[in-house]
Amino acid sequence: VEGHAATVGADGVVHRDLFALSIFYLSLSLIISGVGFLKPNISTVVGKLYPEGDPRLDSGFTLFYAGINIGALFSSLICGYLGDTYGWGYGFGAAGVGMLAGLAVFITGQKYLQGHAEPPNPAALRRRLLGPLSVEWAIYLGAALALPVFWALMQLGHAVLWLQVLTMAAWLGWLSWYVTARCTPVQRQQMLACVFFVGICLLFFTLYEQTYGSWLLFNDRMLT
């Protein structure tokens, strides 16, 4: 039985296709990089479509998030069905087609975004930063150089865990100093309230991001 990242031999031993697995991790790295460019910007674009205090803003974001969730629902159903029925090459291929369709819709629909999807200061992007490289091309180069880093980190789970622990410890140390030495009592209360909500948000997204990973594996093993 042959798969995209593994082959089961006649002896029943699973032999991993390391090249296919590397391509899989590279694909995930590209998705990570793309989402990093998308998510901080797309919500801002939606928010700028409405003037300050416009009562339609909440409705606009409701439609925006409803569209995302509907897309996530049908994409998982379609890609999962194609993968189980015809092979995962078709399932992942359908996901790629969906991404290209989304990009095409965004590009052709920019006229409805009132210019908010364009750089606010194009001259700043054309400024030379690294020799002949402009700021814009330096950003693209940085994103390309980050791909092998993402690719490696996804295969170094323990290293990533310790990196997260050290980063959290450093951040907590800085935060303790900042709220003690630099904040007024009112600001200190506001900062601690923000930290509380950030913690709740982290807990939520920690569980939410398991939806298509460990939760599926847990349910699959419990049902079998």
Results as ranks from 00 to 15, higher is better:
Ala146Asp: 05
Ser214Tyr: 06
Val14Ser: 05
His15Cys: 02
Val160Lys: 13
Ser29Ile: 06
Val105Thr: 03
Phe106Arg: 07
Cys183Glu: 10
Arg128Asn: 12
Gln190Met: 09
Phe64His: 10
Pro185Ile: 10
Ser75Pro: 03
Thr167Ser: 12
Asp220Ser: 07
Val1Glu: 00
Val35Met: 10
Ile70Ser: 11
Leu129Tyr: 12
Gln155Cys: 04
Ser29Asn: 04
Gly12Leu: 11
Phe204Val: 09
Ala193Tyr: 13
Asp17Lys: 02
Gly60Trp: 04
Leu166Pro: 05
Gln187Arg: 14
Cys183Ser: 14
Ala101Trp: 03
Tyr140Val: 12
Ile42Phe: 03
Ser214Gln: 11
Leu38Tyr: 14
Arg221Asp: 01
Gly142Asp: 09
Glu209Ile: 03
Leu207Thr: 03
Gly9Lys: 05
Gly83Tyr: 00
Leu166Gly: 11
Pro40Phe: 08
Val105Ala: 06
Pro185Lys: 13
Gly96Ala: 13
Pro148Lys: 08
Lys48Phe: 03
Gly67Leu: 11
Ile32His: 04
Gly109Phe: 05
Val8Thr: 09
Phe61Cys: 02
Pro148Asn: 08
Gly67Thr: 08
Leu130Trp: 14
Arg221Cys: 02
Gly36Ala: 11
Gln190Trp: 10
Tyr208Pro: 01
Ala117Met: 00
Phe19Trp: 14
Leu28Val: 15
Asp58Leu: 13
Val179Arg: 07
His158Tyr: 13
Cys79Ser: 15
Leu147Glu: 00
Ile42Pro: 00
Leu73Phe: 15
Gly87Lys: 08
Leu175Glu: 00
Phe197Ser: 09
Ile78Pro: 00
Ile32Asp: 01
Leu216Pro: 00
Arg127Asn: 10
Leu133Arg: 12
Ser134His: 08
Leu73Cys: 11
Ala95Cys: 07
Leu217Val: 13
Phe218Pro: 00
Phe19Gln: 07
Phe218Met: 04
Val13Phe: 05
Ala170Asn: 05
Val46Phe: 09
Thr184Ile: 11
Met168Glu: 04
